[in-house]
Each structure stands twice: as C-alpha cells, then as structure tokens.
C-alpha cells in the first residue's frame, strides 16, 4: 500500500470509504502505530511515530487516539466502568487531563444517555445500543484529539446508525475532536466534513498468487 498523503485537521470529521479488503484496516493500523510503514512518515499531533520506540508509540496511541471497533469490542468480563477507564490505565497524561476518572466516566455515561448505575454492570449484560454508548465513552474519556472508528455502524440497522452517529458527532463537536471513520457505506457521507475513497489516496499492489 502506498499512501502519498493523507491528513486530518483538528476537529475535522473524515469518512474513509472502501470495500472489504481495500486496505482500510491496514491504514488504520499504520495511523495507530501498531504496524510501521516501510518508508515515509506518520504524524500524530505533530509527532512522527515512525521514529518512536515501540513503547513510546503505544503510549502515544493511548494518549492521543480513542478507538471504536466494528463490534464495540468491550471486555466481556469487565464492568462498564472498567471498560471506560481502560485507556487511562496506559495513558498517564490522558488520565491527568481527566482529574477524577470515575466521576468523568459517570458523567460521560449520563451524557450518552446510559441509565444511572450502569457503570457497575458487566458489559455483556447491556443491550447493543448501550454497548455502543460505552464504546463511545471509552474512546472519548480523557478527550483524545483523534477518534478512530472502524466501521462502527456496519452491524446496525438504519435507525440505530443515525442515533449512533448523532451521539458520536455531538461528542466530537463538543470537544473539538478529529474523527476518522472507516466505512464501506457511502450513505453516511453527508454527515462528514470530508469523504475520502481509499482508492483515491492509496495505491495497492497485491502480491502475485
């Protein structure tokens, strides 16, 4: 995969469209620093993560990026509170930004419309809609400058998709957070500041079978 240039501005929402197998997940892994490019630069908040050690890169990811997965990927054995606070465990600066982490998590839950007292419940006992909200809260806690969402609406029906995006945009707008969301559904395009098709920004050479 060759990506000549891709940038996301502060507070900007970008939708990255592409079919399955088009390299979207690889691109997200590159941005998050879990894989490294053979050459070139990947900058997060002005820092070239390709020059960092593995540990520093992981820490930077924890500090700067909130991640929302396709199926929300909550820890099934953890409580709602455990899941929301998990990124802070690996990001001391983000934790400092939060102050009282438990209070902040409860506040986020309230803002996201989760019922009071839900924080002590096991993540697996929640409805899909509630799990979405917990996943958003986990990504937003400590106000990371960038949210990366990997096809978070693919498993949702149309009504749920709208509700989820309303929720996400309300939070990112409030905190001036950049949002890079990956999807293969072009119907979502209207909600975003910018829409990019992966084939427009990346050339992919596939190895011969």
């Amino acid at each position: 995969m060759t990506v000549p240039k891709l940038s996301v501005a502060t507070g900007e929402s970008v939708l990255l469209l592409g079919e399955s197998g088009s390299g979207k997940s690889t691109l997200l892994s590159l941005i998050c620093g879990t894989i490294l490019p053979d050459q070139g630069r990947v900058e997060i908040a002005g820092t070239d993560i390709t020059t960092l050690s593995g540990g520093t890169r992981d820490k930077l990811r924890a500090e700067q990026i909130g991640v929302i997965f396709q199926q929300f990927n909550l820890l099934p054995f953890g409580s709602v509170m455990d899941n929301i606070l998990l990124p802070l465990r690996f990001a001391p600066a983000r934790r400092k930004r939060v102050g009282d982490a438990t209070a902040e998590a409860s506040q986020l839950c309230a803002k996201l419309g989760l019922p009071a007292g839900v924080t002590s419940a096991k993540a697996t006992t929640l409805s899909v809609g509630q799990q979405q909200r917990v996943a958003v809260a986990r990504a937003l806690i400590g106000q990371p400058p960038l949210i990366i969402a990997d096809e978070p609406t693919s498993a949702l029906d149309a009504n749920s998709q709208v509700a989820f995006l309303d929720l996400l945009f309300a939070q990112t707008t409030t905190h001036n957070t950049s949002l890079l969301m990956v999807s293969h559904d072009p119907r979502l395009s209207a909600r975003f500041d910018r829409v990019i098709r992966i084939e427009d920004i990346a050339q992919i050479e596939r190895a011969a079978a």
């Binding site: 998050c32 879990t34 593995g54 540990g55 992981d58 820490k59 990811r61 924890a62 500090e63 991640v67 997965f69 990927n73 909550l74 820890l75 998990l86 990124p87 465990r89 690996f90 990001a91 986990r138």
Partner: peptide, 16 residues
C-alpha cells in the same frame, strides 16, 4: 485474540 486487540488498541504494549 479480540481481548488482546482491545488492550493493544487502548495503548497496552505487547509486554503488558
């Protein structure tokens, strides 16, 4: 693997 991926996404180092 999914559990480990969650931890990695949250910033956990492989050594964690």
């Amino acid at each position: 693997r999914r559990e480990m991926a969650i931890f990695r996404a949250m910033g956990a180092r492989p050594v964690a």
